[in-house]
């Protein structure tokens, strides 16, 4: 290869160690930029995010179409219990799977491929990598999922309006539920990032995140009812999902206290990830 012999330093500076152009330093903003490049240059990012938007919008619209068309044949009791917001936003249940998986992969994907060693060699203080990944992923998930929830809501309520069973964003609690969907999914994503950084393993990370979010509440049902009622409001997903409830459900926390608790669990996981990332050999 003819280019091989050209070994002169051709960078933006003179000889290293001598006075040259101002030398760039590692800053949080630069690490954020680097993480943005990493995130947008993996195909898995696109497919997973497209999957989560499709789940949220697709199922949201689908459930509204079904509800609208079946409305006349529903029993009075069914009609009484019909919750137009819950039905409309139920796609979040599938979307959280994609968001959680991609969150775990933010770190576990780097550990699986060895990329983490390049990342931590470039940023030996390490914590800026965790903060950048968490902040960036949270911003991306929040923007996409809030938009998707709004689209799902507007289209879905449009469909329900034909039966006069729709609601408006200005109705009490509705805006909180719609925007809460984006917020809940954002925190699910952050929990994934934290767990991925702690376990450094994709399969283990995914199993842990969904074990906590989906399996714990089901396990708790096996307890005597009084125990379950006492415990389940405090479980992370139950607490977080209370933000999306328009009407208060028995044995759940109030929307904002519940969501704050969910955030606290996630922050604790992030703090654990920070300590371990700093302390462990990469």
């Amino acid at each position: 290869m003819s280019v091989a012999m050209d070994t002169r330093p051709v960078g933006d500076s003179a000889h290293p160690g001598t006075a040259g152009a101002p030398r760039g330093q590692v800053t949080q903003a630069r690490v954020l930029h680097a993480e943005w490049i990493k995130l947008r240059t993996l195909r898995s990012t696109f497919w997973t995010l497209i999957g989560s938007v499709t789940a949220l919008v697709g199922f949201g619209v689908l459930f509204c179409i079904i509800s609208a068309s079946r409305w006349p044949s529903m029993s009075a009791q069914e009609q009484h219990h019909f919750d137009p917001v819950q039905t409309n936003l139920r796609g979040y249940f599938l979307a959280q799977l994609a968001i959680g998986v991609l969150g775990v992969l933010m770190f576990s994907g780097e550990y699986a491929t060895g990329m983490i060693r390049s990342s931590l060699t470039a940023v030996p203080r390490r914590l800026p990598v965790l903060w950048a990944k968490a902040a960036l992923y949270a911003a991306v998930v929040w923007a996409l999922m809030t938009a998707a929830a709004l689209v799902a809501f507007l289209v879905g309520q449009g469909l329900l309006a034909s039966r006069h069973i729709g609601v408006s964003l200005t109705d009490p609690g509705v805006a909180r539920a719609v925007f809460g969907t984006g917020l809940y999914l954002t925190v699910v994503g952050l929990l994934g990032v934290a767990v991925g950084a702690i376990l450094r393993n994709t399969a283990g990370g995914i199993a842990t995140v969904f074990g906590v979010l989906l399996i714990l509440p089901v396990l708790a049902e096996a307890l005597p009812t009084s125990w379950n009622n006492a415990i389940s409001p405090w479980l992370p997903s139950t607490a977080g999902q209370s933000l999306m409830a328009v009407h208060h459900v028995d044995h759940t926390l109030h929307p904002w206290p519940g969501f704050v608790l969910f955030c606290a669990y996630t922050l604790a996981a992030l703090a654990g990830a920070a300590v371990l990332l700093k302390r462990r050999d990469a």
């Binding site: 051709v10 960078g11 933006d12 760039g24 330093q25 590692v26 800053t27 630069r30 690490v31 930029h33 680097a34 993480e35 490049i37 990493k38 240059t41 993996l42 195909r43 898995s44 994907g109 780097e110 491929t113 060895g114 990329m115 983490i116 060693r117 390049s118 060699t121 470039a122 940023v123």
Partner: peptide, 29 residues
């Protein structure tokens, strides 16, 4: 340290671009 300290799903160019970004090394480099 190990040749395979690279995410296999990313192109070589983008791998280097992301590393460069951490220290503000220009695209030209």
């Amino acid at each position: 340290l190990e040749a395979r300290a690279v995410h296999t799903g990313r192109s070589a160019y983008h791998h280097l671009l992301a590393l460069a970004a951490t220290t503000g090394i220009p695209r030209r480099r």
